[in-house]
Computed example of a mutant assay.
Amino acid sequence: MTRAGGTGPATTRRPTQADRSAYTRNALLESAARGLSRYGYGRLRLEEVAREAGYTRGALYHQFKDKQDLALAVIAWIGETWTQEVGSLIERESEPVAALLTLARGHAVYCRRDVARVVTALRLEFNGQDHPVGREVERTYQEFVTDCMDLISAGREAGSIPPGPPVRTLALAFVGALDGTVIALAGQAPHDELLAARAVAGVLGLDSLAVTHH
């Protein structure tokens, strides 16, 4: 490959300060997500987050003002990366059951980075408290439940999901079965992906063939 108008090899663009800052921030967020998944908010130690990411505590404070700021950023980061990695797969499915099974499989794969317990841990830790982190994680959880409700409603209208409990009740069971399975099967790839799909298929009232066919 040559430069436009030249004959020598193309030069690789050197990372800018903004590139390096973004890389550092992402590494710290992923490390913090693992820490929150393992220990929860109260026991999360910022120096350990920084060390696991390969940075100093000063580098962490350059990106985030305190633990609360970091935790809120982790919740946003999970939402963004999950949408990029799993949401994009769901959008390719035109049939609700296929979308729900793809969601389950994709979620299991996404959580292999040891972040499966973040939402569950934070919801339990802040249950009944009026705290910014608790409010934000609850908002994102309810948003996820609503998205599942929409797919379940569409499946029932299409006749691919049988009638049964109220849609919201079914969506809550779907999310609970998915989270519980993925958390229990941490480190059990590739079985986590298949069994997550089977777990939610059971909740939805589908037979096991539906998982294989989708």
Rank of each mutant, 00 (worst) to 15 (best):
E91Y: 10
T16C: 09
G159N: 09
L122P: 08
W77A: 12
P190C: 04
S153P: 02
R92F: 02
T140Q: 12
T83Q: 10
V145Q: 12
K67H: 03
A158D: 14
N26T: 13
L172F: 07
V145T: 12
G8E: 00
V133P: 04
D207I: 00
R117I: 03
S37Q: 06
A184V: 06
G155D: 07
I75K: 10
D130H: 11
G5R: 09
V49N: 03
E30V: 00
G106T: 05
T83Y: 02
V211H: 14
A196V: 04
P165R: 05
E143A: 15
D179Y: 08
S21Y: 06
L185K: 11
A22K: 10
V133E: 02
R13S: 09
D66C: 07
N127Q: 15
I90E: 11
G176K: 13
E143H: 11
P162K: 02
A196T: 06
G180A: 13
A73F: 03
D66Q: 04
L170R: 10
G205N: 08
V137P: 15
E93K: 15
K65I: 01
R51T: 08
V182F: 10
G40R: 07
A71W: 05
A99S: 12
V145D: 04
I152H: 03
I183D: 08
Q129A: 04
H131P: 14
A210D: 05
P96Q: 06
V200C: 00
T181I: 06
L72R: 07
R43V: 04
V211E: 09
Q63N: 13
R38W: 00
Q68M: 05
L206Y: 04
Y39V: 08
P15K: 10
F174D: 03
E80W: 06
F64C: 06
R117Q: 07
G6W: 03
L70E: 00
R139G: 04
H131F: 09
S153G: 12
A199D: 07
V74D: 05
T146D: 10
R112A: 01
Y23H: 13
V119C: 04
S21A: 15
N127K: 14
A108G: 05
F144G: 15
R3M: 01
T169V: 12
G79D: 14
V86S: 05
P166L: 00
A186E: 13
I152A: 06
S21N: 14
L204K: 04
F64S: 10
L70Y: 05
A32F: 02
D130Y: 09
V109R: 13
A76T: 06
D66A: 04
L122A: 08
R25Q: 02
L195H: 11
E80F: 00
S88K: 12
T120P: 08
E80T: 13
T102M: 09
I161C: 15
Y61E: 00
T12D: 01
L172H: 14
R25A: 10
R105H: 00
A50E: 02
W82S: 08
G8R: 09
F126Y: 07
R38L: 02
R38Y: 00
V119E: 08
L195N: 03
P15A: 08
A201T: 00
T181D: 13
L172K: 12
T56A: 15
S31T: 05
V86N: 11
A98P: 04
R3L: 01
F126Q: 08
R139P: 02
A33N: 03
G159W: 03
T12M: 14
R20W: 07
